[in-house]
Amino acid sequence: MSDLSPQDAYNFAYLDEQTKRMIRRAILKGIAVPGCQVPFASREMPMPYGWGTGGVQVTAACLVPEDRLKVIDQGADDTTNAVSIRRFFQRTAGVATTGATGEATVIQTRHRIPETPLTEGQILVFQVPIPEPLRFLEPRETETRKMHELEEYGLMHVKLYEDVARHGQIATAYAYPVKVEGRYVMDPSPIPKFDNPKLSGSPAIQLFGAGREQRIYALPPWTGVVSLDFDDHPFETSKAPHDCDLCGAKDSYLDEVITDDQGGRMFVCSDTDYCAGRRARGMKGRLWAPEPEGAA
């Protein structure tokens, strides 16, 4: 037994079987009632709340050894959160990992949907901080449950209306509320509203896990998802009015990067795999310069 490495002491995909059964039951009920928040007995995970404990538990319940896992944090494959979670499942589930959206079978994401369109057979797992879209309008869970039960979503429209009244437009830019199949209003997690149209009619299964708040919800493939709006103020996506400075993409969501203290800045794709893929195909942006020979 002494030659067991520490991760061999854990069950496949870290969680014990009883926990996975409980999570799997919640996922199936979430699939059956799209957009409805299903409670689950969230476990302590070896990472702090806010680092994706809900997404990690959903991913652990779905993974099979044949999976190829991609983890992104705000679109990037190489940030601390993404690297940690990817390595966690490499060690505890022995799954292959990838940065390429098209090669992944399971993608865990924090706050973005990849630019590359998803396909059938893929599962997208969202990390959700606050699953209840009405929470900042009504703090009592008993009341928000009742509001979902009665389809009483007027308060959310009042909130969007107040945006219009104050700012002349709906100022909500991320975690933009959506209505699923004409029934439940759902928080799509803090993705930019640029990503909202990708939620609807996706060929992939989309699962949402909120660890601290102990909720799972889901969108089956080909589910109708509509961003809330008004007839005279229709929903519009938004992004920085630039092209990517590295790959020149006009259609991807951009991060603003400050480059000096003289007001210099650049805009780059938030989706690092999408940007790198375009550059590999020879597309260049305004500031792209290949690494000089011999650079470390």
């Binding site: 496949f12 995909a13 079987e17 996975k20 799997r24 050894p65 089956p220």
Partner: peptide, 19 residues
Amino acid sequence: EAPVQSARAFREILEAMAR
């Protein structure tokens, strides 16, 4: 081999329920 077999079976059941 419960952990791996139930994981594979769940994925099939998930796909069946989601589609």
